[in-house]
Amino acid sequence: MKTMNQKVMISAPATATSEFWKGIRDELPLQLGVVPFGLMFGVLGIASGLTPLQTILMSSILFAGASQVVFTQLWATGTPPVFVGASVSVINLRHVLYSASVAPYLRQLPLGWRVAIAYLLTDEAYAVSIKHFQEQPDNPFKHFYLLGAGLTLWTLWQLSTTLGVFASATIPEELSLEFVIPLTFIAIVAPTIRKYPDLLACVTSGGFALAGHALPWNSGLLIAAVGGILTGWLAYRFREARMAR
């Protein structure tokens, strides 16, 4: 705590511009993981029969990688719209958590700012911003940090999607580059499995997804996701209750 205060004191006072640039700088390293994923989303969109315009604009309209992949796969297999909407919503439910955790720091901002920040509040922008907010809760310009991080992520996501769309015809199928998508998710999920409820959520979801992979309308995904969430939560509750005793 002491070293942190010293650091704040010796560094120049934060300005809107300095915060914006700091957000960009901290977000850039994460793009190493974002860009290959964006490229593969572009390729996947075209391979699934979406038009280039549909694929590229989905990256702005949804702006949420995992749900874009699922949207595309479900759409390509003729899933009814209600199932597409439900699946995308379940996948993006985690954003409610992000919204809740940044709210104490940003609630007082004008509506325009809150709308812009909500639009940009995706995984990688949230990850760096919440850390910054916790370190400097009293910094009056900290929303510029999220703006910088979010715009960096947004720009690279659009660029990599577009590049993927136009490169899709030239990528040989033998390279199995679509495997980048599950690999990205493995990199995100594996380190977050720390306790037994996490593992149970993972195993339940994986089991349901496998058992239900041939169900109509890809409903296996939705069942697996909801089943995993509920099992994890019940295990968590059970564990808490036992530890309280």
């Binding site: 699922v70 379940v90 958590l97 998508i181 977050t192 959520a201 979801s205 994986g206 995993g228 968590y236």
Partner: peptide, 18 residues
């Protein structure tokens, strides 16, 4: 608490069939 399990459950459901 339940929302905390969304990423694990959702992403695993995508990974396993893939």
């Amino acid at each position: 608490e339940a929302l905390g399990f969304v990423p694990i459950a959702v992403l695993t459901a995508i990974i396993v069939p893939a």
